[in-house]
């Protein structure tokens, strides 16, 4: 009896919402993990890459297209932001053999810079187009398949497509194999004639692009403003760490665990103790990360590998 009633507590709507959020969060986390693998730096500017995706959707919709098409613009703009960060800031620092800690501050400062620019953009959109550019929400523009909101389907498809493409890229193309070689042993890759900085630059474009895609999906899920990336940056890192910062395909695992823990668990809790608890939802990912760091600092995927 207890089991059945607990299942009923999680409504189908909550599960779909959890699925959507997990997919979007996974897309965000994949980029963080990829960059950590290639450049060995936690990229704090990922927050703004995601927000850039949000405004890509806004721009596309102002141009008269469906905001879902913002995914493509988001990929390009996010990718370009990653490209600029690596080429203009990180690469000169790397050449000076700066410590990882200096690189982290550099990504933090780039995030602040982009945050300022995104706010300027939002102000500009607000005055020029008379839209509420700090309250971007496209839920009413979304389609639905038998009651399931389109964003759930699109996010999951975007995630699956991304993972498959990434797998093909890394395992079936010369470029990808070279990138993997750089991830594993930069010095050796260099001696084989692989242009390591070019490979890293490429990884920053890809990671920024994926973050942009995730950002473009976000306004279909929740109300967005220039702050939205910063709001979720802690959660992105939680997902990435939970999956294992060294495991690219661990990121979706972390994303789904964190996403479901946050959305589904909190709704179960809410039905027991009251709806006030939902305001504390952001604490769940952090708690999960804290537990993971203490028990399995290398991430969940590492457990499987150690056994196998």
């Amino acid at each position: 009896m207890g089991w059945v009633s607990k299942v009923e507590i999680i409504s189908l709507g909550t599960l779909i919402s959890a699925l959507t959020w997990s997919s979007i969060l996974s897309l965000m986390a994949i980029g963080i993990t990829l960059l950590y693998r290639t450049t060995k730096v936690p990229n704090f500017a990922h927050a703004s890459f995601v927000t850039t995706g949000v405004y890509s959707a806004t721009i596309v919709s102002l141009m008269g297209f469906h905001p879902y098409l913002g995914m493509f613009l988001g990929f390009i703009l996010g990718g370009l932001e990653g490209l600029v960060l690596f080429y203009a800031i990180l690469e000169p620092l790397r050449r000076r053999r700066s410590s990882i800690f200096i690189l982290m501050i550099a990504t933090l400062s780039y995030d602040i810079l982009l945050y300022g620019l995104l706010n300027v953009l939002a102000d500009d959109l607000q005055t020029t187009y008379k839209i509420l550019a700090r309250m971007i929400y496209y839920s009413r523009l979304d389609f639905s398949i038998g009651g399931v909101p389109g964003v759930a389907v699109i996010s999951l498809l975007a995630l699956i497509t991304t993972v498959i493409l990434l797998y093909i890229l890394l395992n079936r193309t010369t470029l990808g194999v070279a990138l993997r070689a750089c991830m594993e042993n930069t010095a050796l890759a260099q001696t084989l004639g692989i242009n390591v900085s070019l490979m890293l630059l490429f990884s920053w474009f890809i990671a920024g692009g994926i973050a942009g895609v995730a950002g473009a999906l976000l306004p279909f899920y929740t109300m967005c403003g220039p702050y939205i990336g910063m709001l979720y940056i802690a959660e992105m890192f939680c997902a990435s760490i939970l999956g294992g910062l060294d495991q690219i395909y661990g990121a979706p695992l972390g994303g789904f665990l964190i996403g479901f823990a946050k959305v589904a668990l909190i709704s179960v809790l809410a039905s027991f103790v009251g709806p006030w608890i939902t305001e504390y939802a952001p604490i769940i990912p952090l708690a999960a990360m804290a537990v993971a760091l203490v028990l399995v600092p290398k991430g969940l995927v590492a457990i499987k590998i150690r056994r196998g």
Binding site: R180, E184, L188, T191, G193, V196
Partner: peptide, 22 residues
């Protein structure tokens, strides 16, 4: 380095000189 690698010269590093994942 990656340009020098194409000049007919090969460098075998000390210790960490293979891709152990591959």
């Amino acid at each position: 380095a990656h340009v020098i690698a194409r000049k007919g010269i090969a460098y075998v590093l000390q210790m960490i000189n293979i891709f152990s994942e591959l």
